[in-house]
Amino acid sequence: MNCRELSQFLMEYVGDTLERDVHENFESHLKACPNCHTYLVQYRETIRAGQLACGDEDCSEVPEDLVQAVLAAISKEPR
């Protein structure tokens, strides 16, 4: 397995869905290639970075005018 081939299996490796023989080839390339090892670490950290960056946003409060607009729309709905 070379770097190009390894990059095609990153998602399955991270998701732990690689077939055993491919998994073994993947890991033996990783051991011999510090550049691919760094790339794998950063691929994982990128996923985490997105989750952390957006999780921070999720704590934002709902604007009062949006609350009132939703409640006004609901009040017109049949019960």
Binding site: E57, C59, S60, V62, L66, V70
Partner: peptide, 11 residues
């Protein structure tokens, strides 16, 4: 709306 609105707006 008040509890989940902010999170849903962010989504």
């Amino acid at each position: 709306v008040r509890t989940y609105g902010g999170r849903l707006l962010a989504v």
